[in-house]
């Protein structure tokens, strides 16, 4: 069903769309039309589970979401900045290429799945297999910052990009509970704040100290995170971080080659 939205052409003013009763296709069709008309700031209210919000939008528009967006929020986006004023479900930022997703709450499983570029900031915790197969190529380097802690298989098969976990939802001296961190890791870097035992890490991971250069890179993203959610970046940076890198770039090279 094709829905037409009648609005004044091109404006910098925010336009509000009530998503109530609209299904995934209808809502994304409206977004495409509004962006084609030149709108640069769209607010969606009453969002309840519509999937793929913002997918295939290739312009730097701002989309504010009130409610709970459905799975694969911002999948394949190339440019939009999506702000969720609440929690996100599974698959947020699936294969996104550029742009930014900011979540004022928690996010579900496989957040940042196969992400290729852009940035995701999650204020609270995330689910299983977050940043699975995130990758980078030349100038394209995705960044995923998690304010809280993660569940198992964090950074599984990660092939590139920067994954930062701040552990801000953990109590003092409480360990991260995630197991199998970085299983199959063969690229990219994970910066982890807070304690983990070696057995919580995948076999393909090595623990390193941060260099001055690492700290400079990390500080910039922590500051960006802190500015979104009003944290004190200095206080976050005061705690110890560890750096996880892959032991080899081809962990399964010997397994399949003969």
């Amino acid at each position: 069903m094709k829905q037409t939205v009648k609005v004044k052409p091109s404006t910098n003013e925010k336009i509000v769309v009530d998503a109530k009763g609209k299904d995934t296709k209808q809502l994304n069709e409206i977004l495409r039309q509004l962006v084609a008309q030149g709108h640069t700031h769209i607010e969606l209210k009453n969002v309840f589970g519509q999937r793929y919000i913002g997918t295939d939008l290739r312009k730097p528009v701002q989309i504010d979401i009130y409610g709970t967006p459905g799975n694969d929020l911002g999948s394949f986006i190339e440019g939009p900045r999506i702000v969720v004023h609440g929690n996100a479900q599974d698959g947020c930022g699936n294969t996104m290429n550029d742009g930014k997703i900011v979540i004022h709450g928690h996010a579900g499983d496989i957040t940042g799945f196969a992400m290729r570029g852009g940035k995701i900031f999650v204020r609270d915790d995330v689910g299983y297999r977050v940043a699975i197969h995130m990758k980078e190529y030349k100038g394209k380097k995705p960044v995923l910052v998690i304010g809280g802690t993660a569940q198992d298989f964090l950074g599984e098969y990660i092939a590139g990009g920067i994954l930062i976990v701040l552990g801000l939802t953990l109590k003092r001296d409480e360990k991260h509970r995630a197991n199998f961190i970085g299983t199959g890791m063969h690229g990219g870097v994970i910066y982890l704040r807070g304690n983990v035992a070696p057995h919580q890490l995948g076999k393909e991971v090595s623990i390193l100290k941060l260099t001055k250069e690492d700290l400079r890179e990390l500080r910039a993203y922590v500051e960006e995170f802190a500015s979104h959610f009003h944290f004190d970046s200095e206080e976050i940076m005061r705690e110890k971080f560890i750096k996880l890198l892959p032991l080899t770039l081809r962990p399964y090279g010997k397994l399949y080659a003969y």
Partner: peptide, 8 residues
């Protein structure tokens, strides 16, 4: 299965 269904 999905948080949205609860929030609704």
């Amino acid at each position: 299965s999905e948080e949205a269904a609860i929030r609704l």
